[in-house]
């Protein structure tokens, strides 16, 4: 014979097991903390980097730093300007400090805001560093 107390204990154990399994399973469902990823190329910032004379500057390291808390995940990829001075970053909406730096030039930092579903344009004009 099984007493009511034993039944209660048994049911509690089953419920606890079910809760634990569900909880574990939920942790394995892919998270939504995907930053800019999976949102297509429609959000982010792009632009052109030139010198004072309007010549494109290639190889400029363009780096975003989120000013939001909590900050979104930004892959540690290096984005650099191409031969025409163009660069592009896929980023989630938010506020960023965007820096552009290259050997032989003074670095420059801008504060930008990226809105949902929009590509922001941000150009840089770098000054040559005098040595």
């Amino acid at each position: 014979m099984i007493s009511n107390n034993e039944w209660t204990t048994f049911i509690s154990a089953i419920l606890l097991l079910a809760t634990s399994v569900c909880s574990y399973a939920n942790q394995d469902i892919p998270v939504t903390d995907r930053g800019h990823l999976g949102q297509g190329d429609k959000e982010g910032v792009s632009g052109r980097i030139t010198d004072r004379q309007g010549h494109p500057v290639a190889g400029v390291f363009v780096h975003p730093r989120s000013l939001d808390k909590p900050a979104p995940a930004i892959p540690e990829i290096a984005i650099v300007s191409d031969a025409n001075g163009h660069y592009a970053w896929r980023l989630p909406p938010g506020k960023y400090e965007l820096s552009a730096s290259a050997i032989g030039y003074h670095g420059m930092v801008k504060i930008i805001t990226i809105k949902a579903g929009q590509m922001t344009t941000e150009d840089f004009i770098l000054e040559r560093a005098l040595h």
């Binding site: 995907r34 990823l37 999976g38 949102q39 297509g40 190329d41 429609k42 892959p75 540690e76 990829i77």
Partner: peptide, 14 residues
């Protein structure tokens, strides 16, 4: 390498 070094990630990536 990292996945994001070969593919930009997510169904909208390339």
């Amino acid at each position: 390498t990292a996945g994001h070094c070969v593919h930009s990630g997510g169904s909208g990536g390339s």
